[in-house]
């Protein structure tokens, strides 16, 4: 509340956002009935003065409370509301993707419905986006969550993602993000990928910025996350890293992976043969050959997998080409 003034939208800023024609706010909702009305009021306050056409897409992710009914009622007061109701609970990533797909704006903002994000950050995000970014991520530097169960694991995960993927984003878990429409149309989120949006965007060449946003403590409802996802994050991160590095050339990737097995295998084989066939044959056990052949077998197996990988991505080559074209267009538009 106290830094309200700093956030009030200036006239200068209002003129700048005119370069965007339509704003879509995508908000996944899962049992957030209590929070919806204050959220809409805050959104109206924050987005209203921007002088830009806006739609608020609430994606109901199979809520069991009366979230949808409340949204319907709110729609009379806030005509910008659009409701996308999913058949059941499909998870945050799927809900976000559904919202993205139904969004029409040339600028899209995603945020949580739990009021922990502050809609007043939206104008700042848009402004930052105009500086020439495709994606601006919120950074909850001053997080209002339990430290041990939420903040610490998140800090560790973010550190790991920074190290492994190389994006300089401090807070990958923050839902409050602003995207250019073209980026959103290109993104295809699945499984639990909402944690890696910045990483995936960076892979397709997006320019990524970061902005410190406010984070508030939860008032209504319960948090839907726990600590039990470490292995999932690790496994996803590993997969993403390898796809980022070798996704377009799997054979090379698997060749690299196979090297530590092929090399010792061949060396051992040479050593064994040298001993057996050399000038003074020495008695040796079969075990050496067996181990050498096992290693070489694994090496062959991994190379063959690499070939399968090549087949897999070649079937979808046009898609990769589309991505390249999009980035070319963006460069033209940016300058």
């Amino acid at each position: 509340m106290m830094n309200l003034d700093a956030r009030t939208v200036s006239l200068e800023h209002r003129l700048q956002t005119a370069s965007f024609r339509k704003l879509s706010v995508v908000i996944p909702v899962y049992n957030e009935a209590e929070n919806l009305e204050p959220l809409c009021a805050e959104l109206e306050q924050a987005v209203g003065p921007l002088n830009i056409e806006s739609e608020w897409i609430f994606v109901d992710d199979g809520s069991s409370d009366d979230s949808v009914a409340r949204l319907r009622r709110l729609k009379h007061r806030f005509p910008a509301i659009r409701i996308v109701k999913l058949r059941r609970n499909f998870g945050q990533t799927a809900a976000m993707q559904a919202g993205f797909e139904k969004s029409a704006g040339d600028v899209v903002v995603s945020m949580d419905a739990d009021l922990q994000n502050d809609p007043r950050d939206i104008p700042c995000l848009l402004k930052k986006l105009e500086e020439g970014y495709d994606l601006v991520c919120g950074w909850r530097r001053d997080r209002k969550d339990p430290w041990i169960s939420r903040n610490l694991p998140s800090k560790m995960a973010n550190w790991l993602i920074r190290r492994v993927i190389g994006t300089r984003i401090h807070d990958n878990g923050c839902s409050l993000k602003a995207y250019r429409g073209e980026l959103v149309r290109m993104l295809r989120l699945y499984s639990d990928m909402h944690r890696f949006i910045a990483a995936v965007s960076a892979m397709s060449g997006a320019r990524i910025g970061e902005l410190i946003v406010t984070h508030r403590a939860r008032k209504h409802g319960a948090s839907k996350y726990g600590i039990s996802r470490t292995f999932k994050v690790l496994s996803d991160l590993f997969a993403l890293k390898l796809i980022a590095r070798f996704g377009s050339k799997p054979l090379l990737g698997f060749f690299t992976l196979a090297l530590p097995f092929g090399l010792p295998g061949f060396l051992l084989l040479v050593f064994v043969l040298w001993h057996r066939l050399g000038s003074s044959p020495q008695p040796m056990r079969v075990v050496n050959e067996t181990v050498a052949l096992l290693f070489i077998g694994t090496w062959c197996f991994l190379l063959l997998l690499g070939l399968i990988g090549e087949m897999a991505i070649n079937a979808t080559r046009p898609r990769l080409k589309d991505g390249a074209q999009l980035i070319l267009e963006e460069l033209k538009g940016g300058n």
Binding site: K75, I83, K85, L86, R87, F90, G91, Q97, A98, S191
Partner: peptide
């Protein structure tokens, strides 16, 4: 592929 099923859009 699609990860979700939309029941209705209002």
């Amino acid at each position: 592929s699609k990860d979700y099923q939309i029941e209705s859009i209002m």
